[in-house]
Amino acid sequence: MNAFRFLGDMTHLFSVLVLLLKIYATKSCSGVSRKTQELYMVVFVARYMDLFTDYISLYNSVMKVVFITSSAAIVWCMRRHPQVRRTYDRDQDTFRHVVLVAASFVLALIFNERFTFREICWAFSIYLEAVAILPQLVLLQRSRNVDNLTGQYVLFLGAYRAFYILNWIYRYFTEGHTSRWIPWIAGLVQTALYADFFYYYFLSWKNNVKLELPA
């Protein structure tokens, strides 16, 4: 465990808590893409299946349980909670996220560490996580105004991936030059997807104006 990875995990945890807070406190999920949340739930389930088979550390197991339960809780709220589900922008959240699932799965069948069920699920979860934010970014572009909690949510999510890239660089130089192409390439793609959002977020912060994304 190094500081970059710990910071990455904490900002990731924070992004989920900010989202849960927003939904629970305001009893509203307007501006939140349910599709992105469903993709994240699939990512966590597909990646953390080793939760019951391989014990790595208490921290590792606790965080896996937290991520799976929080993403499931968010999806449940957006689908079942009587007050929250009414505020879901159904007609705005139109990204065909099934395509993302299918593409990630095909990629995982081709590019994986070993052609085993667990490795393919792991690679699938890595590829899917890289693109899972797309429905959310499209929804933000559509709804133009970004309420600050949703903005912070995306910001923390991007920061988590940026910290992980620093973590991979650190591990590469300190733990023997093991090259791990799958998470590296997927992680770079994922962080690049946030780059434009970061740019507009920074502009809105600098000019102290409400975050407006160009149409």
Binding site: K64, R114, W122, E175, R180, P183
Partner: peptide, 10 residues
């Protein structure tokens, strides 16, 4: 193997 240590990350 290389892939194993990748699994210690979240």
């Amino acid at each position: 193997a290389a892939s194993d240590n990748a699994k210690d990350e979240l």
